[in-house]
């Protein structure tokens, strides 16, 4: 079995789930709150509703972490791996088309 995801990865998964669950409602409120053609009172109330959403419902709280180690920094987006895991896997030949530079 692969290593168990650490707490930071679990929290990130929770944030992702929260985004999925609340995305449509948040979009609807955003539409009303940012629409300048609507009355100010309505927009204000929509903004108040937006503020009641939890922390883990905003897409900005989601961070792409290393899928192997859960490391948050130095993650190479194309592979979803941190720089060290990228090196390990590349040297092991597990990443098609990646080879060590040599000239």
């Amino acid at each position: 079995m692969p290593p168990r995801p650490n707490i930071r990865v679990l929290r990130d998964i929770k944030a992702r789930q929260g985004v999925v669950d609340n995305e449509i409602a948040r979009r609807a409120y955003l539409y009303v709150a940012r629409n300048q053609t609507l009355p100010a009172q309505v927009r204000y109330r929509a903004q108040l509703q937006l503020n009641t959403f939890g922390r883990y419902t905003r897409p900005t709280t989601v961070k792409n972490r290393c899928t192997v180690t859960g490391r948050g920094r130095g993650v190479i987006g194309e592979f979803g791996l941190c720089r060290y895991q990228f090196r390990v896997k590349a040297l092991a030949g597990e990443l098609p088309g990646i080879q060590k530079a040599s000239w």
């Binding site: 692969p2 995801p5 990865v9 990130d12 998964i13 992702r16 789930q17 985004v19 999925v20 669950d21 995305e23 449509i24 979009r27 897409p59 989601v62 792409n64 899928t67 979803g80």
Partner: peptide
Amino acid sequence: RLRGPSMMDYYP
């Protein structure tokens, strides 16, 4: 586009 569905696919 809705970003949630693709976000859920990130971790294996």
